[in-house]
């Protein structure tokens, strides 16, 4: 299962114990939108619960601040980036490669603040 940090996702019924464990880990739940794992979540614990409840590996993906898409595909730091321990927003390959990547990042963050 691919999990994009900071984005809502749906899950099949996991049972009370798994649901309760996810809530304890700080996973957000909304009846209409589903579940969300973000900066305030104990990500390692949430991943462990999801992985055992679904019976499959959970692949975490950081979200690109600029475009909101998955930032991890093609990243050269995948091997050393512990996505359960770093802050959950990053930059995708496209938005981290230009000469003005930082300025775009800064501008997007400023716009996020205004909105």
């Amino acid at each position: 299962m691919k999990l994009l940090l900071g984005a809502w996702f749906t899950l099949p019924r996991l049972g009370t114990a798994a649901f309760s464990s996810l809530m304890k880990a700080g996973v957000q739940y909304d009846r209409a939108l589903g579940f969300k794992v973000d900066a305030a979540t104990d990500i390692a614990s949430a991943v462990k619960t999801l992985s055992s409840a679904l019976g499959e590996d959970v692949e975490l993906n950081l979200r690109c601040l600029v475009c909101g898409k998955e930032a991890c595909p093609g990243c050269s730091y995948l091997a050393i980036c512990d996505r359960t321990k770093v802050s959950p927003i990053c930059l995708c390959a496209e938005h981290s490669s230009g000469p003005d990547a930082f300025e775009v990042y800064e501008k997007t963050f400023a716009e996020t603040l205004v909105s």
Binding site: C81, R83, S87, S96
Partner: peptide
């Protein structure tokens, strides 16, 4: 607070 991801550090 958590450490920034490596790619942001690179940028």
């Amino acid at each position: 607070f958590k450490p920034p991801p490596p790619r942001e550090v690179e940028v």
